[in-house]
Simulated scan of single mutants.
Amino acid sequence: MCEHQPPCPSAQAPDREAARCLVAHPEQGWSLLCNGVILFEDTGELLPDGSAIAPHRGPTRPPLIAA
């Protein structure tokens, strides 16, 4: 599917979110990646085979306090 050099990670690869964005709809909260993954604003994903990956945001950092 991907014609980039080097090729984007496949939809099954652990780093699939590193694929290039083909179509972005930030007003709707989703983007289509080169590998066929639909990436949602909340970090959830829909894979080309129809399976879903639940949102997986990392832990939040405590606010920085100026000294």
Rank of each mutant, 00 (worst) to 15 (best):
G44A: 15
D42V: 14
A19S: 09
C8S: 10
L47Y: 14
P6C: 08
P59R: 15
V23Y: 08
Q5A: 12
D15N: 15
L22M: 05
I65A: 09
L22I: 13
P6F: 09
L64M: 13
E27N: 10
P48I: 08
P7D: 02
Q5K: 12
L22C: 08
C2W: 05
A52D: 04
A18T: 09
L64D: 14
A18Q: 10
T43Y: 11
P48N: 07
A18P: 03
L39Y: 05
I65C: 01
I53A: 09
H25K: 02
A13S: 14
S31R: 15
F40M: 14
I65H: 07
P6Y: 03
S31F: 07
P48C: 09
E45H: 06
A11Y: 02
R16F: 02
L64Y: 02
L22Q: 12
L22V: 02
A19N: 06
H56A: 07
N35F: 09
L46A: 11
E45I: 01
I65M: 02
A13G: 00
L46C: 12
C21R: 14
E41W: 01
V37H: 06
A54D: 06
E45F: 08
C2N: 03
P62H: 10
H56S: 04
P62M: 09
T60I: 05
P6I: 10
A13K: 09
M1G: 10
L32N: 07
H56L: 00
G36L: 08
C34A: 07
R57L: 15
C21Q: 12
G36Y: 12
G44K: 13
C34L: 11
L33I: 05
E27G: 13
L22N: 01
L47V: 00
H25M: 14
E41T: 05
